[in-house]
Design a binder for these strands. Structure first.
Lengths: 323, 323
DNA sequence: TTGAAAGCGTTACCAA
DNA sequence: TTGGTAACGCTTTCAA
């Protein structure tokens, strides 16, 4: 209809380089008149690009969505993707059947993947490196961390800071509500707490595992309290769990921070809405997710698979009323 | 490698009909040996299917993710999609630039779309019907509701029930915190409140618009309270806003339900965690989203565009402590 | 049940 | 700058 060849039409539509002005205008007019839209399947058959990237979340979705961590991540990823017209494909899967995930990724349905909330057993970093699929992890992976790009915060330092704050407040019996032991963030935070506790010469066996949910935090805190009624400080590995812990403390008749001082982790908005408002360690997850997305886009643009870049953000203490 | 033609290999891989047993086994063996995966772009170029569906959310994402409504919807949609190996593509867009959405959908990047949280101005139902793209709406669309499939609950009835409960509790001055006036659910709920108020012969001008956020609910409730200090009942159009309203009431020194009785809407889990626990109207959004997804899949399977089916779920009163 | 061959709608190379 | 043409990797008809 534009009176030019398919080749010229194609060039005119994609960027318009090496096309004469009249040819380009003719094509543009025809496109408008016809309401023409390129067929993305045909296009990606030859370009070998899909213009979409996956956000991989190996979590039972009950948990994924109850944690604002995920929500913030999704938002930030989308913010970086949208201006480039890249589509986000959400890949949720139970932690146990990462087979489905891999099957999908192996097909090269997407140009790359961002992985969050991965677990020890999924070995996703190894698998993705093997696939040579561009990828970026939010949070250091257990294995394969030398083969893929990832962003993280210094969880150990953050947790140490939280613990030292409690020590400086005069707490002498400081417990820890930890996250699931198969996630690096949880283990690092536990290590940070333990290091600071040991350095202060305090009792170091008061740790209970939660699962990064509110209910889990409540349960773990209650258990600690039962085991050690003289508890006067609590470092909790996530704000969501801290909310549960606050409830457990209230149920046990403890006042916060007078009887027991509490520090959370995350600072995702809910921390300022608790009663009392939560003193917590902020991890910049918006920045982390954005950075991870950028790392991914670089790989995709350069058509090279994952390189072992790591970016570590510092944690920051945010003081409110609970400690 | 299997010693058969591409045609036979293709048949063997897709369902295996009209393929002899030995041929099929040879192909399967080759597939395993080669680690072969069909190229989805090539496949969908000929089948004209993408095996993915979009979840369209025309909302600024600040809001999308803070409302558990969305989260529950996403979860339910995914639950129906996953066993069929259909991929979910998340399409977020500001309410104002639905152009981006439509551009994407026009390309037939997806086999169909589920639309939630749509607004009056986006005219998404009309647009999708024009595109003849299979689709299903969660919540009745403003226009085009006779051209697309949708599921909804009887919001008017639900709100009426809530209001009648307050009347029966002896409230004489019952306000309403409404949702955004450009969403049918909000308008229907306001209508339900108003009808019940009028039937009881009570003052009917005590409505303030919120925006389905916690902050918006707090603000609207505070405004109502200022305008009419003798307020003794409050019908709030969503639980999230009700949480804000409870805070406004507390700030104003009102006790709930003694001074002011409150009924929310949604019953999405947060209702039981407020203090006092929220009496509310349950809308079965899990069922709604699942049903919408099924309506969509039927259209996709039958290769026909949207037909004007509607499914309406009944609301249900859930009595707790706030009224 | 099988295979040859004709597309599917693009982009990319190469010569003109 | 242009157009002819060869891929891209699959499915589906149609005859055998």
């Amino acid at each position: 209809m534009a009176g030019v060849s398919r080749a010229t039409a194609s060039r005119a539509i994609n960027g318009g380089n090496r096309v004469s002005r009249p040819a380009r205008e003719a094509v543009e007019a025809a496109v408008r008149a016809l309401g023409y839209t390129p067929n993305p399947a045909a296009r990606s058959l030859v370009t070998r690009r899909t213009d979409s990237v996956a956000l991989v979340v190996p979590e039972p979705d009950e948990r994924v969505f109850s944690d604002p961590f995920f929500v913030h991540t999704l938002r930030s990823v989308n913010r970086v993707l949208a201006p480039r017209d890249l589509q986000l494909v959400l890949l949720l899967a139970r932690p146990d059947d990462e087979e489905r995930l891999l099957r999908y990724l192996r097909k090269r349905h997407v140009d790359g993947a961002i992985v969050v909330s991965h677990h020890r057993s999924d070995r996703l970093a190894d698998h993705l490196a093997d696939l040579e699929l561009p990828c970026a992890f939010v949070g250091r992976p257990w294995t394969g961390d030398d083969r893929v790009a990832y962003v993280d915060t210094d969880n150990e330092a953050g947790s140490r800071i939280a613990t030292e704050l409690l020590v400086s407040r005069g707490c002498r019996t400081i417990g820890h509500v930890a996250g699931p032991a198969d996630m690096t963030a949880a283990v690092d935070r536990r290590t940070g707490w333990h290091g600071a506790i040991a350095a202060a010469g305090l009792r170091d066996d008061l740790s209970a595992d939660g699962d990064f949910t509110e209910a889990g935090g409540e349960e773990a805190a209650a258990a600690l309290l039962e085991r050690c009624p003289e508890l006067d400080g609590l470092v909790v590995a996530s704000d969501l769990m801290a909310v549960g812990a606050l409830r457990a403390l209230e149920a046990a008749g403890r006042r916060v921070p007078r009887d027991v001082a509490v520090v959370g982790y995350d600072d995702l908005g809910m921390a300022e809405r608790t009663t009392p408002a939560l003193t917590t360690i902020r991890q910049p997850i918006g920045d982390m997710a954005e950075q991870a997305t950028r790392l991914l886009l670089e790989q995709i643009d350069d058509r090279r698979p994952s390189v072992a870049i790591r970016v570590v953000f510092p944690p920051r203490l945010v003081t409110r009323d609970s400690a």
